[in-house]
Design a protein around this nucleic acid. Structure first.
Lengths: 252, 252
DNA sequence: ACGATACAGTGAACGCTGTTCACAGTCAAT
DNA sequence: ATTGACTGTGAACAGCGTTCACTGTATCGT
């Protein structure tokens, strides 16, 4: 991060220093590797969010000119993909087999949310780009295995997987740094917001006036947990397509 | 869109044309109004998505220099807010009161998704910015009213609202134009993807190998409908906190 | 041991973005 | 008729992702 260019001067006099780094093969020639680039990108995102990641600041922090990055990464899109898999690697996908499948799904979802929110902006990348890296696949495997234990047919398991994954991603996407959440965190602005809601014309927005203060709350954790409970509960209730869970057929 | 600057020359000779436009008061002076700007921005987004909306192309299409836009809009963020409310105005929030609350919620969610996906990228704005414009509030009122008819306490209705809204937004966000979906729409690439999934090491990814082809499918409509059914079904089952729907408490 | 070769990094440029600011021109009111 | 308010102009600033001819160095084959 400080001086990238190795001080080759001091060794110019004494000819052979072949001894010191025999490990690494073609490692010594390249002062910068793709791993370095991705690692520094992860550091930037972890510190200041994904918006702070520009090729220029990344290059500067690596002590290099912007164009040099393109020797290791095709473009910023590919950098995003690499970073994405690096982030998903932080999600522990090992779960206790003794737990019920519902609990396993919940644990995994909570872990995924935690990691995503620790890297602001990452969820936005996951929404549009596909998780096909090794770590992404491992996580998908864990989710699928848990859901598969609920004993539904494969096609419905696929739908359930998409549902849980989409929900978690969507939730993490409007992270705690969004305007939405910031506005609700500060008690003063939250009170002003509640006052605004109550001041709305009661004939046009009766339910908003009455219940608005229950919607805009500083309760991200509760919201995620409650939503996940409803969701997994719904999945549990629709394991076998009984008369209650009609309408799941792939018509249309 | 063509010649914005009015031909003021032809009227320079004959002095008073006070007769023609007495309507509009201070309307004639301004050749460009905020409504014009927002309308053109909506047209751009509707045609080419939110990424195609830059101040420069917007200004060009209005026959104006980029800086002129800042007379009507504080910055691009505010433009996004205005555009957002304009899009949400397209969602019809009238629903038949005769329907069950579950059906009303589903109808509203489907309408919201349709409108959001008709304007690629809009869902991304909704996730971070708050919907407090008049049309946004009307839609929130409709959702809340339907959910409130389920007879749960106010606090839980608020949670249910967030859940349904977040789900719909999250789903619409990874719209049909995302890489994820594009990859699955073309049968050839979809088959390659399925082959890749089957080719994974079965000892590390057993469930993925077996069920992967049920996850990556070209079934957005089915996915949304099925997810919404599970979700609303879960909400229906948890109306009264019975022994089945335990774990909704705001612990942690 | 030496010349050929591959290649990481350089520096400069291109075209794009959002935004600002002094200025010009025009309309409305005084 | 003069003043004042205000919209649109033109140019600029700083930053973005990306490309490309070039340079220097480290490695390989002879």
């Amino acid at each position: 991060m400080v001086q990238r260019r190795p001080a080759a001067d001091e060794d110019a006099g004494s000819r052979p220093l072949w001894f010191i780094p025999p490990a690494g093969a073609a490692q010594r020639r390249r002062v910068l590797t793709r791993e370095d680039v991705v690692a520094e990108a992860l550091a930037i995102i972890g510190a200041d969010g994904v918006d702070a990641l520009s090729m220029r600041v990344l290059a500067t922090r690596l002590g290099v000119v912007p164009g040099a990055l393109y020797r290791h990464v095709r473009n910023k899109e590919q950098l995003h993909d690499l970073v994405l898999d690096g982030v998903l690697a932080e999600v522990d996908h090992e779960v206790d087999d003794g737990l019920a499948w519902t609990e396993r799904v919940k644990v995994l979802a909570h872990r995924l949310r935690t990691v995503l929110e620790a890297h602001p902006g990452i969820a936005g990348l996951l929404k549009t780009r596909d998780p096909l890296g090794p770590h992404s696949l491992a996580l998908a495997e864990a989710f699928l295995a848990a859901l598969n234990a609920s004993g539904r047919p494969g096609r419905r398991t696929g739908l359930a997987f998409c549902l849980v994954f989409d929900y978690t991603l969507g939730f993490a996407l409007s992270g705690p740094t969004s305007v939405n959440e910031q506005r609700v965190q500060d008690p003063a602005t939250r009170n002003k917001l509640h006052a605004f809601l109550r001041s709305l014309p009661a004939d046009r927005f009766p339910t908003l006036v009455a219940l608005g203060q229950h919607v805009w709350l500083n309760n991200r954790d509760e919201r995620f947990a409650a939503g996940l409970d409803v969701l997994v509960g719904g999945l549990d209730a629709s394991r076998r397509p009984s008369r209650r869970a009609r309408g799941h057929q792939p018509q249309r």
